[in-house]
């Protein structure tokens, strides 16, 4: 199996991405795409056969509220318009009591929370025309009283709903720095066969905390987590996320090449 390598599509670098060699697929922030006015660049990429995966940030599937049917309908519409093979969202909550957090906040890793998320995911799956993949978030804090690890939480979620996974290796590194998580142990616990794709992104450490900025170069420890994952199971797709402070084209291409090299080398060895 060949691993597709992609990059996060952002409007500021649409033309750069179109012309970047070695981009097999892209991911768009679903909330930023207007179906009535699909960006020309996405149409060009689609015409070239490049897959486009809508990545939601606003469903809040780990929240206590049920997912908003209008948001789900819009996500489904975007997936349809882009002929996407799947959509993705976060294992996070973004609002409560009618207030928007503006951030992807971690869910409590408890049995009660799992029940809520299972139900939310089922509702989302029923509304979407394509499979849904959930991403492990990057967190600066965790809830007290967690009853299980995030990997265990995701595993049970996969078993009960059949939801697919989007594993962010940069977020695993974030958890390692911020909460002492062992990425190898987490990966060993996850149902890797459920992985649809992998996120890789840069960040920066400040005052002992890792900030998953998506605005810094991808570091060696993050690529090392990717290597650990690939050694266990080669993922179908790996995607580089870059949201701001875009580097020169050459550096972007070099980061994609580095990701591809890790995937290829590890797969040969494994």
């Amino acid at each position: 199996m060949r691993t597709a390598v992609g990059i996060g599509w952002r409007p500021e670098i649409d033309l750069t991405i179109e012309r970047l060699a070695g981009v097999d697929f892209v991911e768009v922030i679903a909330e930023n795409v207007c179906v009535e006015h699909l960006p020309e660049s996405l149409r060009v990429l689609r015409a070239r056969g490049v897959q486009v995966i809508p990545h939601g940030v606003g469903l809040g599937l780990a929240g206590a509220d049920r997912p908003d049917p209008a948001r789900l309908a819009r996500l489904a519409e975007v997936a349809g318009a882009l002929e996407s093979p799947l959509v993705s969202e976060h294992l996070a909550f973004v609002r409560a009591g009618g207030m928007e957090a503006g951030h992807l906040l971690p869910a409590p890793m408890t049995r009660d929370a799992l029940e809520v998320v299972v139900e939310n995911v089922r509702i989302a799956q029923d509304s979407l025309p394509v499979p849904l993949a959930l991403e492990n978030p990057a967190t600066l804090l965790s809830w007290p009283g967690n009853e299980m690890s995030e990997a265990r939480f995701l595993t049970e979620l996969v078993e009960r709903t059949g939801v697919r996974l989007l594993i962010d290796v940069a977020n695993l590194h974030t958890e390692r720095v911020n909460h002492g998580l062992d990425p190898a142990a987490a990966l060993a616990e996850l149902p890797l066969e459920a992985i649809e794709y992998v996120h890789v992104a840069g960040g920066v450490e400040r005052d002992g905390l890792w900030h998953d900025t998506h605005a810094h170069p991808v570091t060696a420890p993050i690529l090392e987590v990717l290597r650990m994952l690939c050694a266990l199971r080669r993922p179908p797709r790996v995607l580089l996320e870059r949201d701001s402070d875009f580097p020169p084209v050459g550096e972007m291409a070099a980061e994609l090449a580095a990701i591809r090299a890790v995937v290829t080398r590890t797969a040969v060895r494994s």
Partner: peptide
């Protein structure tokens, strides 16, 4: 490659 130009005509420095 020191600038990124979008189809909408927005320019950002690399």
């Amino acid at each position: 490659g020191s600038l990124h130009l979008s189809r909408d005509g927005q320019v950002v420095a690399a």
